[in-house]
Nucleic acid binder design. Structure first.
Lengths: 155, 155
DNA sequence: CGCAATCAATACCAACTTGGTATGATTTGA
DNA sequence: TCAAATCATACCAAGTTGGTATTGATTGCG
C-alpha cells in the first residue's frame, strides 16, 4: 500500500495543533484533549517528535511541548523520518545491504534514484502547506525560484 | 520506513528478466532459476503481475509468462500498485475512511495532495528506465515535451 | 521540604501484515 | 492419455504496529 504508519499521521495532526497554538506550552493532556488522541498515545508521538528535534520539551510542572521551529521549516519528510526512519524503499537502499540475489539487484539499484525523487518531493512540502491548501502554488514558486534542480509544476 | 514490500521488489526483478528475454515464454522454473528466487515465490509474484495485467500467461504444457507490453509502457507505479494496491499514504486517503479524530483529519486531508505527487513521480519512471541508468535524462525529455504539467529535472 | 504536575524510559501484548511454502485442481499440447 | 504448466487456496512462522501500563526522573510552588 506504500503507506505510512498511523503514528506519522498523528505526528502531523499534533504538529498542526501546536502550530495553531503558537507559542503556548502544551502538555500531553492538552494535546490529547485537543486532538482526540489518548494521552498515552500522545506521549509516544511526542517522544518521536522530540527525538527528531521537531519539538522542544520542558519537563516538570507547567512543562509541555512547543514547536522547535516555524511550520515553514518543518517538512513532511522531517516528520516521516522522525517516525519511520530513513526513507529506504527497498532493503537494497539501506547501508547494510547484502542481497541474496546479488546479480539482479545491481539493476534494481535504481530504486535509489526513486528514493531520491520521493524524498525531494516530501522535503518540499511543509507543515505550513498542509495547513493551507496552497501546496501547488507554493511548490511552484519555491522550486522554480530557489532550486532549479527540481521542478514540480501544477500537480 | 516508507518502504515497499519485498514482493514488489521481486516483481521488478522478474519483469526486468522478462524484458531482457524479449518475446520468449518463460516458465516459473525458468524465472526462478534466472533470478535466484524459489519457484514457489515466483509463482506468487507472477500471480500478482498477471492480475494486474502486466504479464500475459499461457497455461498448460510449454506455457509460461511474457510481458504484456513494452518496458517503456510499464511504470513503477504499475508494479507498486500490482503488489500493494492503490497508493494511500494514510487511511484517510482511502474510500472508506471514517476517522476517529474527524475534526483534525480535515486538515490532514492534504495527504491526498502528497499522494498525487508521489503517484505522479512513480508513474513517470518506467521499467525501461530502471534497466538503463538514464532515468534523469529520460524524465527530463519526456516530462518537458509530453506533459508540461509536471517537471522533474536532474534529480 | 514535600507535593503535585509533567515528561522519560521501558516493557508488554494483541492484532495485523508479510514472506515463504505446500497442496490439490485445472488447463494445454503432443 | 499423460506430462507440463499454471491456478486457487490455505497455512504458518516471524516480524511489525498500535495502543497501553508502569515506574522513575525532573521541575515549580507553596
Amino acid at each position: 500500500m506504500l503507506k505510512i504508519g498511523k503514528l506519522t499521521d498523528y505526528g502531523i495532526v499534533v504538529l498542526n495543533h501546536l502550530a495553531q497554538s503558537a507559542s503556548l506550552q502544551q502538555s500531553t493532556d492538552d494535546i490529547g484533549l485537543a486532538t482526540g488522541l489518548a494521552t498515552a498515545t500522545v506521549r509516544k508521538v511526542m517522544k518521536a517528535l522530540a527525538d527528531a528535534g521537531l519539538v522542544i520539551t520542558r519537563r516538570g510542572a507547567h512543562g509541555g511541548y512547543r514547536l522547535a521551529r516555524s511550520p515553514l521549516q518543518i517538512s513532511v519528510l522531517d516528520v516521516v523520518e522522525a517516525f519511520e526512519g530513513p526513507v529506504a524503499l527497498t532493503e537494497c537502499s539501506t547501508d547494510d545491504h547484502h542481497c541474496d540475489i546479488t546479480e539482479n539487484c545491481s539493476l534494481a539499484s535504481n530504486w535509489g534514484g526513486i528514493n531520491q525523487l520521493l524524498m525531494q518531493v516530501l522535503s518540499r512540502v511543509t507543515l505550513e502547506d498542509l495547513r493551507n491548501p496552497h501546496v501547488q502554488d507554493r511548490l511552484y514558486r519555491e522550486l522554480v525560484q530557489q532550486s532549479p534542480r527540481i521542478q514540480l509544476v501544477n500537480l
